[in-house]
Amino acid sequence: MIRRLRLLVTPDRQADRVVPPSGHSAWLTGFTAGAMTFLAVFALALSLASGRLADRWADALARTATVRISAPAEQMEIQTAAVLAVLSTTPGIASARALTPDEQKALLAPWFGPDLPLDALPLPQLIEVTEAPEGYDGEGLRQRLMAEAPGAVLDDHSRWRRPLATAAARLNLLGGLSLLLIGATMAAMITLAANASLAANAQVIRVLRIVGAQDDYIAAAFVRRFTLRALAGSGIGALAGLIGVALLPPVDEAGGFLTGLGFQGAGWLLPLLLPPIAAAVALLATRAAAFRKLRELP
């Protein structure tokens, strides 16, 4: 095993020379590794961005809740005061405040326009609740509200948060799946290139077998070459991908998700892991192809 590993990783200029240097498989392997790594950089950026988005949505929504009070006009003030009193004594609630008529008007403006006659409509009173880091007992709070203010309904946003978080997690999953597919496609393409190269060099392999070369030696000559080509191609692809991501428009208030596509902080280093991974994929794919081919020969 150690000898096999040494054969694979030790540069042996003479052994590398036994495989003729040119051929379509050479540029095909480098190009495939480069193109796939370029795409992988974007898939990685998508995956990381959707992960951040999921965290942000979950975080922002999880820390706020709303109490909606639907009551007759003469009961509204009493129930609002009762709800605020309950909230002020509930552990895990950082703060609670009733929205002003103007704030409620602003919330409805996108649907009904700015001239909404708020006084003429039986609108519920909204109370914005901010959760403390330790969190509160939602079920307990609901029961207390029911007892103190029958028209009050607690909405902890889980109904909205769940599909958003699910969507973001799915995006994250898709990003990861894309990376896997890109890796599998690269392995398949490099296997094809390696098979073509092995077939084109059947005479070389036959000569080497006749003069006493062991399978490890022959395979290593091909594996080293394909691994290095994949490493070089992938390095160029990763660099191009990083430049592409860096050239995307910067994050701004109006940008939303698309302008948030990219890397942050140490995340910029992650694409640098792709060339070694591509090289490892090439190594495994070529090695499997080489031994499969060699076993066909006497």
Binding site: R17, V18, P20, P21, Q203, V204, R206, V207, R209, I210, V211, G212, A213, Q214, D215, D216, L294, R295, P298
Partner: peptide
């Protein structure tokens, strides 16, 4: 084994009529 065959061939010199070489070396 295949490795044994390779090692055995190192003790046997073979000359073919249609001798094959690595043409790029």
């Amino acid at each position: 084994t295949r490795d044994d065959v390779a090692l055995t061939r190192r003790r046997i010199g073979v000359v073919h009529q249609d001798v094959q070489f690595l043409d790029h070396l």
